[in-house]
Design a binder for these strands. Sequence first.
RNA 1: GCCGAUGUGGCGGAAUGGCAGACGCUACGGACUUAAAAUCCGUUGGGCGGCAACGCCCGUGCGGGUUCGAGUCCCGCCAUCGGCACCA
Length: 862
Amino acid sequence: MSERRKQFPFLEFEPHWQRVWKEQQTFRAPNPGENGFDPTKPKFYVLDMFPYPSGEGLHVGHTEGYTATDILARYKRMQGFNVLHPMGWDAFGLPAEQFAIKTGQHPAITTSKNVAHFKAQLQRIGFSYDWAREINTTDPDFFRWTQWIFLKLYNSWFDPEKNCARPIEELIAAHTPDSYETAGSLRDFIDSNRLAYVSEAPVNWCPELGTVLANEEVVDGKSEIGGFPVIRRPMRQWMLRITAYGERLLNELENLDWPESIKTLQRNWIGRSEGAEAIFRIQGSEESITVYTTRPDTLFGATYVVLAPEHPLVEIITAPDQKAQVSAYQEQVRSKSDLERTDLAKEKTGVFTGAYAINPANQESIPIWIADYVLFSYGTGAIMAVPAHDERDFEFAQTFGLEIREVVEAPQLSKGCFSGEGTAKNSGFLNGLSTGNAKRAMTDWLEEVGAGKRSIRFKLRDWLFSRQRYWGEPFPIVWNNGFPEAVAEADLPVVPPLLADYRPTGTIEPPLAKAKDWITLPCGASRELNTMPQWAGSCWYYLRFISPKDRLSFVDKTAEKYWMHSGKPGGVDLYVGGTEHAVLHLLYARFWHKVLYDLGQVSTIEPFQRLVNQGMILGSDNQKMSKSRGNVVNPDEVIAEYGADSLRLYEMFMGPLETSKPWSMSGVEGVYRFLARVWRLVMIENQEGNWQLSPALVFDAPSHRLRKVMHATIKKVTQDVEALSFNTAIAQMMIFVNELTGSEKKPVSAVKTLLLLLNPFSPHLSEELWFRLKKTFDGFDGLASQERWPTWEESVLAEEEIEIIVQINGKVRDRIRVRKDLDAEELQQRAVNLPKIREAAENKIVRKVVVVPNKVINLVLN
RNA sequence: GCCGAUGUGGCGGAAUGGCAGACGCUACGGACUUAAAAUCCGUUGGGCGGCAACGCCCGUGCGGGUUCGAGUCCCGCCAUCGGCACCA
């Protein structure tokens, strides 16, 4: 097939124009104050999720989103915007490190090789990135600032009163000595408030990968990458206090132009719930148990209390004769992986502690159990069990024969456990109240008698931010006498040491432990051995694109204000990427951005105003593309066969950007034929087999009909590009081309308009034909890519005569051509006189006439 | 189990509540050619009737509803995909 003669010489002109654009810096976007910057133009920041440059190279799934943003970037430039459209590399990560383990090749070498490959692939597609802004997260000039931002987090605390982050120095000023006396020391007090802090809590440890993972990276008890088992074990780890921002991360989603489904995903992940804490005294003890519940209205139905097995009170309250059983159960739970713990969730397990708590509502004495269905990490790690109105408690109570007491009357008859809303009963002062009112009444009462209070909880946990890896950003932290200390800003970046051996140590020690010389500093302090997770760089890379070479700060303030200011909460005007980042990257980046905002470093509260998720491109077998299925399509092959313009156009023609759809080579061929038809509008082959300008090109004004199609096309393409509805824009251009192909003479003005409309989609062909026309016709100066976008005239589109459909009882029976805006009465006259209508209406009475102006007349008969 | 998305010809997909199937693919027929490819022109949801122009009926996952009129709005199912999953 590759031997077949190409229908137009894209193999020559595509690389040519790529070279021209590069040499002329056609897509360079200067910053305010720089040469060539035009302050009168509005800005548009259009961003792709930058890729991890894997060894496999790009496939056509990556390039779909990139094509969409490129079309928009080119379109906006033609509309007179200053367009920021950058690309870079998210290059820290496990694959390069694992490749290094296998081959001994340093990850930096693999990375730069892969980057070169990716970049060449992208350039072959003709994307209009401003390559002068290229960034790489593994570049010390980049990660210096990742480390710098980490220090900002480390040196800040969250002020709940002002609901924002503040420099750590202000913490000391804002508090009296006794507020930190309880924390042990001033140091402990400060450390326990930092946004980046060290924690000893149980973490997800993956022995196979030799690293810990964030909750978000563990799927069904296995590592998201590789699918290896993950166990829980306590380790000393860096955490980021993202929970402090729970409320804002939730509320500030509101005014973003994101798909509602992604917002929902984030809302669910943040998981805000409103409820109450209730305090249960323990019988015969000074201790008490605080539980969290979203259903305080069911307190009278609480027939037992359950503590998480890890709960510290367990040791204190357990009755001597239950000690053995309780410890055995705790041991059993401890040894379970998360996978087992959730898998075995089918059957509830637990042990009675032998202790009793007092229900504050009715003073009844109820048993205290421990069970692993209660999570230590959520709420207070303890619950009041209301088996009549909670599925899980119900199951547990049935297994262990505990009392089930109904306290909510279901609106309809229901069997077993009713967890919905209804009317309180058997509940003393709550009786007769609706669930909503009963919740309020009970919470008020708890506060009044001092047995509890209102409380809001989040499912969101603090972000586990350290990894036991080599190929990541080192922490700008040193340890001195067992305490962490920030590396001075002037000493950034902290560059990872060269290692001969990258293998995991086989223990919990990170690989950096092997770099003995690097670890120890002259002053005796030793370096933090963990590295940051891969998310770190992507949390702020969109800011670095604004001033990628800035030596003085992570982002130039003036440029940041220009490119990020949109009068809306989010700064990036359009962000396109896959749904797989719905919670992780997008939540983390929002968090960092808000911290930077609070500290006065950036000018918007949100990073990304409009978010669009491109759908997945499936193989032609309708399956996810994967090496093992052998259905992966490489863009290079498509380009070799049909050209970059065909690749771009096909990816946009397949269907709506947001949906997933299967690849089809014959579909590529379809758009290829379309581009060939465009080519032949301008060029014909002479007898020697050379291309020459078509003699059918004329200066004549387009026919009335052609003019109409042309203006309709300008309108539709403009509106569809704005709406990212590229497939229908292309369909309209096809209609336009079909019209031109069908007409004997090809008016140059119509061809010119076509080339401009096509330019963002298939820029090489547009540029080439523009250039060829320039030789013979006036009005083709410069580059097509730098022309103004055409505008349409509504008056050309106005129809003087319209076809109206005539319905009887809602079914189409006939159609008539009438003057536009003909009044209803005359229209009805015309309609009923139609032979077909007369026939159908015979012996029937006209009950009603519905007229939709210029569209429909419907006669309702019977 | 809960949340979300999707469901239209042989295929990818179009349709502000107003002619369902734009545009493309596939297939078939024709033109050009010694022949083929490419190109150009036509047909292409299903069924029934007619020599024909054409006419009629059915049809947007399934069942109801609102409406003069529903692929589109409402209610209830089914299927597929994605996310969450003891979060009290």
